[in-house]
Nucleic acid binder design. Structure first.
Lengths: 137, 137
DNA sequence: ATAATATACTACAAAAGAGTAGTAATTATA
DNA sequence: TATAATTACTACTCTTTTGTAGTATATTAT
């Protein structure tokens, strides 16, 4: 009942890019600042670039920055970019088809937690993450 | 954002044992009725026996049955038996220490979903699972 | 006793997730 | 133009989860 490491990393990196958006940042900086595995990060960032969440510029003075306004990047967008998008849609007991009319044994109990998770994912933008409070990345 | 296969299997098997608690059931029957991998199930059931959730009797006419009253087996007990117990306690961004006074960037957003998940796990017993409604296992 | 039907144990295999290594391609700047 | 700094690409390795195979051991109906 948790995000994948990859998802954790992606959220943290993107939030960092927003928090320090005066300039772009190299993978090496992100690696050091967030204490994430360097090579794994390069792979992840390449992916986020392909998915259009991040802009990359190569070469000296290059680096990474958000491709869109932080108000327009929601957690669900990040999950989607990583392919974990529909995870919270999935039946909690693993059935292919599971809905109110043909529910699994846990369906009813899962409805409300699932709703709140969905709300969190669809209403939390990178911009909304960093307001009012000092938080860890 | 989901249970492990092992957890899914455990919940389904235990719920089945409760739903058909007139008698005991062999791994082979559980395998066929629930369409779960046979050998994997034997391993899982052995574990649930060790953890005291299930009684096993060997030999002809043997099989598996709940070791405790279904009203006294909660989802959190099942997770604990499998070692996935404290998963929902864990920080959503993976930090070791993360609480209200030293929160990660997602801490506040995660509070409510986490609460509902916790409620579900601690208040849903096997007995409460099967009331009022036809559901899949 | 014997045969049949169970669980229990040991070891391995396959698949997915996480992480590493090396090198190619690109680009600002000296 | 040479160099240093950077992302992109290819191909591994390691670890964890999931699943399989074979055998030993226990129980009971006949």
């Amino acid at each position: 009942m948790h995000f994948s490491k990859t998802t954790e990393y992606a959220i943290r990196v993107l939030a960092y890019l927003h928090r320090h958006d005066e300039t772009s940042h190299s993978v090496n900086v992100l690696h050091q600042e967030l204490d994430l595995p360097y090579k794994y990060l390069t792979k992840l960032m390449t992916e986020l670039v392909k998915k259009g969440l991040v802009n990359a510029s190569r070469g000296r003075e290059g680096g990474l920055s958000l491709a869109r306004d932080a108000h327009e990047i929601y957690l669900c967008d990040i999950l989607e970019a990583i392919g974990e998008s529909m995870e919270h849609e999935r039946c909690i007991l693993g059935f292919e088809k599971c809905d109110a009319s043909n529910p699994c044994a846990l369906h009813d109990q899962w409805v409300k937690p699932k709703e709140l998770i969905e709300t969190m994912l669809t209403t939390t933008s990178l911009a909304s993450l960093l307001q009012n409070r000092e938080t860890k990345l």
